[in-house]
Amino acid sequence: MPQSTLLVVIDPTSDNQTALKRAEQLAVDTGARLHLFCCYQPEDIGDFHSRHDAKHTTLLELRDKLEALAKPLREEGLAVSVEPYWNQNWQESVVHACGRNGAGMVIKSSYCHRGFLQHLRTRSDFTLIRKAPCATLLVKEDAPWTNQRILAAVNIDTADAEHDMLNNVIVTEAQRLANATQSDLHLVAAMDHTANMADVLGLLEDEDQSRESAIAERFGVNLDRVHIRTGKATEAILEVTNDINADVLVLGTVARHGLQGALIGNTAEKVIDQLDVDVLTVT
């Protein structure tokens, strides 16, 4: 992972900043700069003299909170900037902040939503990962990545150019993360048993080559770290993530052109809410 800016979404309503702890670990590993972004606008401003007073006071309080979080990180030698922001639509504000700061990754705390909430596709995490112009890391817990295993989920069911481009982005981002954290990169793919690997991966026909070795060759991953499952992508991803005790799962969310609707909802959003591990989404 090259040096870049990690935009950390700070929750103004919580003292437990899970995303910041993960961002600190990544900044130490990569040398990246941290940008602490906190967006808040109270619905009720009746206790203030005016809207201007509410905004001014809120931004001062947010800045104080951010500076308190930044102080120990700067003492550690990390480069840290802060940005308080006044807006009720924090998701859109995060997206715009990425552009202003040239962020290479957004890091946000998350958690598993069960039952009814699991099916609300307008949920904040989904809105953010759909629109973010860079990779988005959803942090489920702040424990270190001790297993040193990164799992990238690729789609090898079809040979179209859009899927191929998205697969390349997924593996590239996963490889950068694996290199930066000295982790092993694994791949998982679900496929129809009738799929022709040579056609799908654009390789020369080789009757003696297994599906796993074809994928290993195509993406430059060790053969013993390629995991192929027949059936639904969601089930394959969940199974392999748990089987290898992955620290983080890398998924594609918003593809180009007609793939957008197919990937959003069908795989990424279902998987995110059924895993306790961190999930890195790329576009």
Results as ranks from 00 to 15, higher is better:
Leu6Met: 12
Leu7Phe: 07
Val8Phe: 06
Asp15Arg: 06
Gln17Phe: 03
Lys21Arg: 10
Arg22Thr: 11
Gln25Ser: 14
Gly31Arg: 02
Glu43His: 13
Glu43Cys: 10
Ile45Pro: 02
Gly46Ala: 07
Thr57Trp: 10
Thr57Gly: 08
Leu62Gln: 08
Leu78Lys: 00
Ser81Trp: 08
Trp86Phe: 13
Ser93Gly: 13
Ser93Asn: 12
Val95Tyr: 12
Ile107Cys: 05
Ser109Phe: 07
Cys112His: 04
His119Cys: 14
Leu120Lys: 14
Leu120Asn: 13
Thr122Pro: 02
Lys131Ala: 14
Ala135Gln: 01
Lys140Phe: 13
Pro144Met: 09
Pro144Val: 09
Trp145Val: 13
Asn147Tyr: 04
Ile150Cys: 04
Ala153Phe: 08
Ile156Tyr: 01
Asp160His: 12
His163Cys: 05
Asn168Gln: 14
Val169Glu: 00
Ala174Gln: 06
Arg176Asp: 14
Asn179Glu: 01
His186Trp: 01
Val188Met: 07
Val188Asp: 01
Met191Ala: 04
Ala195Asp: 01
Asn196Leu: 09
Leu201Arg: 04
Ser213Pro: 03
Ala216Val: 08
Leu223Ile: 08
Asp224Lys: 11
Val226Asn: 00
His227Glu: 10
Thr230Met: 08
Ala233Asp: 02
Ala236Gly: 09
Leu238Ala: 09
Val240Glu: 10
Leu259Ala: 06
Ala262Pro: 08
Ala268Asn: 11
Glu269Gly: 02
Val271Leu: 06
